[in-house]
Amino acid sequence: MPNKTKNHKNKKPKVTKPHRVSKRGRTKKRLVDIHTSRDRYTPIHEFSPTRDTYEHGIHPMDQYLRPGRIPHIWCSGCGLGSIMTCFIKAVQELDLDASKIAIVSGIGCTGRVAGYMNLDTYHTTHGRAIPFATGLKLAKPDMHVVVYSGDGDLFAIGGNHFIHAARRNVDIDIICVNNYNYAMTGGQVAPTTPIRARTTTTPYGNFEYSFNLPYVAIGSGAVFVARWTALHVRRLKETFKEAILKRGFTFTEVLSPCPSAYNRMNKLGDGLDEMRYYKEHCIIKHGADPAEAKLGIHKDIIVGKFVDKDKPTFMDLYNDELAVVHGKEPTLEISKKK
């Protein structure tokens, strides 16, 4: 829980001790809305808006973080911080012109990434990051447009947009942080929640099938599909680099601990416990058939780069269309076919 951070110095760090759990499996204190109260107390530092003028530290990643936005709202033990660090590192190592990268997020804990990165960032409505990003990318084809959002945002309310953007092969990169639940609203069931897992709206255990996200992505037409966890920082960073450079619709699923909501409800311990679980149960299998990479509670996790192929993007095909309209020959094989 974010509000506890102040006491950390005085306490010995507890690593493995599970949360105190009542008989029915819920912690005593119910989470209502984890973050709204936190926002009020975020100190607003003196304003200085660009990375050149800001001087709060010497960390090499500072220039990619928005001045005055730290401390963030995320709970201690949450995977979102390390995943964002991987992303920043990827951008840094690619040495891209930062003004040519835009982040589009939906709503959720993951959706808050947009607000922390010192780039052109768009924090849109719940589920609509992908169509917003589609418009942005088509209007600004020279930019790298990255959609950074949660599993609920991208696959429940935004699921239809996901499959259609993948079908069109719009040249955008989707980063989906999958914490198996709707974390921002306090931990409700999501389309990714495994069967039998508890959430605040499945107090007796989830009775719905869940999505296998890489399988959905491939079935919809994504040209690049990978899965890692918040533990695989180096591999994740490399995948981010590949995805950003890849032409076409890419999908990276990142499994992430959510100690405050999902882990708590399922007695999975804190962030470190979850990381340990990843360490012990992840099997790296590049090129694995995503159909066989389904996730489940207490199951092994297949990670790796599942798909990496090439096909013309939406803009490639559209440019051919423009060529035809202007009386020229199309260039792509696929557009030449009648």
Binding site: R128, P131, F132, T134, L136, L138, A139, M143, H164
Partner: peptide, 14 residues
Amino acid sequence: MASMAAILGASWGG
């Protein structure tokens, strides 16, 4: 919903 989101994105694209 997507149409509306897309025109907002395009507008931010200038």
